[in-house]
Nucleic acid binder design. Sequence first.
DNA 1: GTCTATAAATAGATAGAC
DNA 2: GTCTATCTATTTATAGAC
Lengths: 245, 245
Amino acid sequence: MAGDERRLQILRVAMRLFSQKGFRGTVTKEIARAAGVSEAMVFRHFATKEELYSAILDHKACLHDEMDPLQMVAEAIERKDDRAVFEGIALSALTQHDSDPEFQRLLLHSALEEHDLAHMFWEKFVRRVYRSLGNYIRERQRDGAIIDVEPAMVVRAFIGMVMHHSLNNNLWDPKRSLLRISNEVAAREFARILLNGVAAKPEGKPPAPVRQLRSARTQTRANGRDHGARKTTVTENSMRKRPRK
Amino acid sequence: MAGDERRLQILRVAMRLFSQKGFRGTVTKEIARAAGVSEAMVFRHFATKEELYSAILDHKACLHDEMDPLQMVAEAIERKDDRAVFEGIALSALTQHDSDPEFQRLLLHSALEEHDLAHMFWEKFVRRVYRSLGNYIRERQRDGAIIDVEPAMVVRAFIGMVMHHSLNNNLWDPKRSLLRISNEVAAREFARILLNGVAAKPEGKPPAPVRQLRSARTQTRANGRDHGARKTTVTENSMRKRPRK
DNA sequence: GTCTATAAATAGATAGAC
DNA sequence: GTCTATCTATTTATAGAC
């Protein structure tokens, strides 16, 4: 197998294992075995285990970086269509987490181990979400559409619903024993709850009409908007190690 | 130092280290050093590292087990005071997470490493929350106080807000650079957003009066109800190991 | 109870043949 | 490129003196 090809293969295998068992929990011998090569091959392509980890972060970073989390709902923001903004954000996040569950685990491991991925993700991505979504909320407050509540609090509440749902699906309850629901319905319901929760007026309809869902898992509805988008970012790494002493 | 005393001391030190760096990331030598004893002492009290880990889980379990997560808001449930129910749950969870941040990290590590603590916590505690809080929501739906929405979805949205907030405070953003807010205010705002979000009628007040907060960090308000309670549980463990081959 | 010394296994990393 | 063999440091765990 050609050099770059093999390198990428090892990288992918390592990515899977690191996401499953963390950096310290993954041993190079297992990476080699899973890739069907000898340990020496791993160290031929990556001088140290740390460098392999770095390469993984770079790889993930390059897939996600420079992504404006609100860009795929830009048009909805333009229209001031709150429903479309929040539902779009939720759906793109949930879709992204489903399509790349490794990333969330990698991120959690790195946060717990205090590796750099977590810090970078926080600085580059999370901050941006709080800033831009916060700005949108402030704007809607000026419009009189959203009640007087700390915008960061609204962002946290919403991101909380979405992230926690993904965390449940990917980490705690992959069998979905407590709640089995499509991403589309989840995104719609989270957006509905949040927007009803912070709307200055009962949101279009009169006070308490709302109906739909109830055994939600059946429906899926294509609602004409984007979907299937991408989200989440992170970026280049630090660390670049020398072997031990 | 007496046997049991030393045992407990080692246990506590190990608890701290395991919560910081995970099971695989913590080496027995460091535990010994941090406890100010030799490694041999660690293995005198705990035959293997696994047994030490088990003992920690047991210890945490005994502090939390058999706790009904809704018991400290039982009186509010009785009165059907939704606000008090949700705010009380949120506040007791946030308070508990602050008072024992180790537990959340331990839990996350064990979920990622697929150790037993996570499964037990899920089965014994999370399920109970979904069942009992879900039942309460169903009851309030029958009362016509809450809209027709999947109860588990409401539980997930709410737990999501609260858990994600704790996770931010304890893991991602301990400096509170994005949102610095007291537990009391956070609990109140989360409950407000959620209840406005699912209320069949605009919740007592007319459609859109809501006001308060804005630079929330200042206030703390003692609102006459409980607070400072306890929450979260988990239980006895499995694994009980023999040393290697 | 507590320590020092050390065994036994494992992990990361390298040498050198093919 | 790829492997086998091997080295070294670390890690879990034990022996045995005090």
